[in-house]
Design a protein around this nucleic acid. Structure first.
Lengths: 344, 344
DNA sequence: AGCGCTTACGAAAGCGCTTTCGTAGCCTAA
DNA sequence: TTAGGCTACGAAAGCGCTTTCGTAAGCGCT
């Protein structure tokens, strides 16, 4: 920690500008009660001297904390990395700092991280990643957040709902409906779903979309296998293995995110099953590598970086009475991993 | 920002434990001058009450800042995301917070971020990513960092040197020597290099490794094309296009990182050039998706997550007189993207 | 018993800011 | 002219911690 007394302080600026500490503070904060002339002079001096306020002192004194806490499942998952990238971009513009912490897809860990961030007095909390189908955890998180908000904290969530706060929300159901619709249009009737860990709302929503598409064709979710493993490439591999061995009639696999889809593709390759000739595969998210895979992946594009940007912007706006929802667009991107169902 | 007076303060803990503020502080900080008995009681009370120190007050009062600033080129690049993941892991264990900022592979932006972090009074600075072949920038960064260190700040760099601070360093030269050696062993004599933006030390080092391998075979770097574009998939695509059109005799492409290799593979696919039958491709880093590509990528494995962990651990240790270097292992991982040079 | 020394603790002084409160100085109106 | 109300600013009080300094109590020693 830098030794005290060594950096430029506000009082130095004030002296140089020939005003009191209070006036200098007001000038830089843009508060009223200072004549334009004096305020300009102070700002000028501050700029010349390259003054940067000590955030610790500022926050301690009751100013707004200028750090935003971002909770992600795992930063080295491209989905979250892209969101983080958007958040960092806006934060840089606003002069805020971003603190990232991992929840590791564990509801309790997420809650811990949340509490830790609050205890650390961040000013803004952003939570990315699926919610949990666990009323206890959701209720606790909600209580924690509303307490935080009542003390002036700002919150927004990305890709999850039910927390009673502002949210940036993709339409998971519509997305996977489009995905399933695409496969059905191609004639696939033996579709399997490679899903992540049970208990994530994202998964529930995405499965609901598939169900809805099936119903439109007079089919039902009951007849299609859903393999739950993990929202990672490894999880995709495991799910694919299971689908191949338990449901050999399958001609299309819906992976509920791109990471799993990549695992599925890798397993199919290992089994020498040509994609899309013998098996179609779709993902969800359109992480940037999806286009560079072989075969390139048919998926739903979510604007992750934008979602990150939107979430922070949303949190920065004055709070409204009711939680706001910003829907994100989504787009079916058809690439080379899907094709007509093979004829028998 | 949470309203003051509302959270648990150290004085509350002190009162509950029946000691003074000073004693409570000393107890929790593990300083001496407190009897074991009293210290234990204070710690016990703090734990029961769930006390978390206000980091702003703590830092302002001259305690160590408990936030680590991590500068990366781009967080949604898997190489950096994996490093960040390791840093976040250790930080979580140590109760530190990680602030991430982007330098965008721009030396001046990096310098700005550095200054910003210092101005923000972080306690530890970690810089990941290549250095720059730009004496001015390097000198300024070095000066800034040494000033920071002289005021008690801790610093470590990851994957770059020449900054006069502790470093976690892969052996870029040996790695690419192994890579080139592998291709030479396979009989390739028309090798091209897809490199990132000129001016990065990482690139210089990796090219030097190739050069050294070539020399051992009586060949020289002079005869092989080096295309500079960008350390991204897009950059890989551009480089590949140029290599294909300007150097059709090429049978192997060394991409200087995995992202570029992925771009190269994607371009080769677009040109219907079979890999590795007609063209071998190697990358560098072994980002986790490299194993799941089609074909899977021959590359040099760098333990990115470990590098992140090591860097933070290194910075946390008491400073030594001279900058320490922690070499990281590297491993040639031969996969499906390389094969014997095609016979004419 | 009296001295100095150590140990264990409390009182209080900041750290650099924001904000409240007080007060000159000025303007307006009677 | 004087009372009343602004406006523009300064003095000073914290924010919650760490750390320095002072001191009472306990110890061994002469």
């Amino acid at each position: 920690m830098p030794k005290p007394g060594t950096r430029l302080r506000l009082i130095d600026v004030a002296e140089r500008a020939g005003v009191s500490l209070a006036t200098a503070s007001r000038s830089l904060a843009g508060r009223e009660g200072v004549s334009e002339e004096v305020a300009d002079r102070v700002r000028q001096v501050a700029r010349e001297l390259g003054y940067v306020a000590n955030p610790y002192a500022r926050t301690l004194a009751g100013g707004a904390s200028s750090t935003v806490g971002l909770v992600v499942h795992q930063i080295d998952d491209p989905y979250f990395a892209e969101i983080a990238s958007g958040v960092i971009e806006i934060a840089a513009e606003e002069g805020l700092l971003v603190q990232i912490c991992h929840s590791g897809r564990d509801p309790d860990a997420e809650l811990r991280q949340l509490r830790h961030l609050i205890a650390q007095r961040v000013g803004i909390i952003l939570i990315a990643g699926s919610g949990y189908n666990d009323p206890r955890v959701e209720a606790e998180a909600r209580a924690e957040l509303s307490e935080f908000q009542s003390q002036g904290g700002r919150v927004a969530v990305i890709g999850r709902h039910a927390l009673g706060v502002d949210a940036v929300l993709p339409d998971n159901e519509a997305g996977s409906r489009a995905l399933a619709g695409h496969l059905l249009d191609l004639g696939h009737r033996h579709i399997a779903i490679a899903a992540g860990k049970e208990g994530l709302t994202t998964i529930t929503d995405r499965i609901a979309g598939v169900s809805s598409a099936l119903h439109q064709c007079g089919l039902s979710l009951d007849n299609i296998p859903i393999v739950h493993s993990d929202f990672t490439r490894g999880g995709g591999r495991m799910a694919a293995e299971q689908i191949l061995s338990d449901h050999p009639e399958t001609t299309a696999i819906i992976a509920l995110n791109d990471a799993m889809a990549m695992g599925v593709l890798s397993t199919l390759r290992a089994h020498h099953i040509p994609v899309p000739e013998q098996m179609s595969v779709v993902g969800f998210d359109d992480v940037s590598v999806a286009a560079d895979l072989a075969p390139s992946l048919t998926t739903i594009r979510l604007p992750m970086t934008d979602m990150g940007r939107m979430a922070l912007s949303l949190a920065l706006k004055p709070r409204s009475a009711r939680p706001r929802r910003r829907p994100t667009g989504h787009l079916l991107v058809v690439r080379d991993s899907t094709g007509p169902a093979p004829s028998r």
